[in-house]
Design a protein around this nucleic acid. Structure first.
Lengths: 337, 337
DNA sequence: CTGTTAGCGCATTCAC
DNA sequence: GTGAATGCGCTAACAG
């Protein structure tokens, strides 16, 4: 005796009637089982099976003020750097009963503001941003909304609410320190146009202590853009000895272009990426990079929101997860693959 | 005169009061402006600004039965093959006022069923699956729910509702036809373990007309797995002349492993991928592949749901978007990059 | 342990 | 054009 083809979905009312209990008892049997007798619970369970009942979480959320949804906002899904973060964010949230509402900003502050407004209207229990929120109006509005917000992949003294990330300036500086230790003179930067990549470049240039030839390519980066960036850099600096790239994808493109031009990597040209993408350890040569724990960023962001929603305090607002350089063959012939 | 820090968000009731109109007039001024006088609209607009009102879409959806949310379900976000589809899906939906609820199944039919049940509870106006829904119970439940469902990246005579994709069997067959035309005798397959990749392998083997050495790697694929797959295949078939891969990522790994072993691609070993990933045209050698219009799949899926929600008929249920082979250097030394 | 009462914030009837 | 009632499906309060 199946439900009719889709006249109307069963409601909790139908379940209660079928089980011979009151509406609220049925509700409790499902969402707060500890407080209902075993016998009643069994009756309700049977009624749920019989009716094919699926709770309407929108209705529940309206009253309880908990939507069990979290908004996750990225520049674009194609920015593979953020994928492990979004993946672990989604997984961690799902394990706690939350679903992710996805938004894309296309690196555009206006779209960002629009997306955030739409999201707020859906009453998410939390918002996770990749990057810091650009628009001041959006920051104010978020702060006043009272919704827990986690900004990620960056740091700030004055986050909207919480922030989980690392210092891009320090990343750039660390790579520059590494380049200096190698004694490379003629160096260049291949970088995406986005804010965080530019910050890394600033850190790099500051530590190098002088102006550095730079090729800027539009975000998101790609292998093709990496190839173009190297062509661009070689035109500016024919004796180029080493390149600092704002992503492993870009670095891979630089390596390919170098090889096509007959340059040996790392003997003629050293290349460093960023992000520790999974492929970087397995290319030939393998690519030196800066490791950032993307999955942990997502997991922690999710946990912070889950904790906040559970009423736990959470004193700490700023979480610096740091980074570390991974030396591979693209800067050091004797490095392990 | 800002709203208090977050005592309570403004409701439509507050807006109506501030504007000196009734609740329903305020509602209409926002959601059905054509039917309200200009003067009233202006007053309501001003009140919206003053109160910082953001509509609660959960509440609206409860009554109107339209949540303006669409569930999008992928095996895992890290399967880069689906990214362009999810991206265009999200963008197309957003342009029509819909948001995407993201779910991940990890290629596990049980998780798939669980995810679908959760999603149905959120009353989405549509559900977009990558792949066909495996579990028969989930299929029945979805059909009865009356929610528009689009299965994608595959074809079926009996979709739950609608399907947008192409024939994986035919893809495999087309690649086999190409290999046969080249006269390659010793060929192998490197394939992911997922259902659709296996279908392509079946098509390939059927057209080759004999058993083919195969290396199966767990989905999702990676460059590293591609390298391992070639090692595996060469152990089975030392005279291997050509490899058919279930993704461009795998193909890239096969190329790298071949080069490391001193095999020239394509002279000693030809390699074909699948998916036309953006990097494949820019590696050295560039990678022959099968192009599938991922963004169009997402766009069409979104459009079908939007149309259905707007009450338009939509007679066609099955959309075969086809595919085409792109010959590049990894199978043909004289091919363009 | 169970039930009754009252809404959550909005949009769909109807009236005027 | 505008407004007053009613209820979407569910759960927080309180009662018993």
């Amino acid at each position: 005796m199946n439900a009719p083809l889709h006249f109307k979905a069963a409601t909790l009312h139908d379940v209660a009637k079928a089980a011979g209990v009151s509406l609220i008892t049925a509700s409790r049997a499902l969402s707060n089982p500890g407080v209902v007798s075993e016998k009643t619970k069994a009756k309700v369970q049977a009624a749920v099976e019989a009716t094919g009942y699926i709770p309407n979480m929108l209705a529940g959320g309206l009253k309880s003020k908990r939507s069990l949804m979290v908004a996750g906002i990225v520049p674009a899904l194609s920015v593979s750097q953020f994928l492990p973060t979004v993946q672990s964010l989604t997984t961690t949230l799902a394990a706690a009963g939350y679903q992710l509402l996805l938004g894309q900003t296309a690196y555009d502050p206006e779209r960002e503001e629009a997306v955030l407004n739409t999201m707020i209207g859906r009453q998410p229990d939390g918002i996770v941003m990749t990057g810091l929120v650009q628009s001041q109006r959006a920051r104010d509005r978020l702060r006043r909304s009272g919704i827990p917000v986690v900004e990620t992949w960056d740091l700030s003294d004055r986050p909207i609410d919480m922030v989980v990330g690392f210092s891009h300036l320090k990343v750039g500086s660390a790579v520059a320190g590494y380049f200096l230790s190698k004694g490379w003179e003629e160096v260049g930067v291949a970088t995406g146009s986005d804010h965080r990549a530019q910050l890394r470049r600033e850190g790099f240039v500051a530590t190098m202590g002088r102006d550095i030839p730079t090729a800027v390519v539009p975000a998101p980066s790609s292998l093709e853009l990496g190839r173009r960036a190297l062509a661009d850099l070689l035109a500016k600096a024919p004796k180029l000895r080493a390149v600092c790239c704002s992503s492993d994808t870009l670095a891979q493109g630089v390596v390919v272009e170098a090889q096509v031009r007959g340059l040996r990597v790392p003997e003629d040209l050293a290349v460093c990426g960023f992000g520790n993408a999974d492929f970087g350890a397995h290319t030939a040569p393998s690519v030196t990079t800066v490791h950032v724990d993307g999955p942990e960023i997502g997991r922690l962001a999710a946990q912070l929101i889950i904790d906040r929603c559970s009423g736990r305090p959470g004193a700490q607002k700023v979480f610096d997860l740091g980074f570390r350089m991974i030396e591979r063959q693209s800067t050091c012939a004797s490095a392990p693959a």
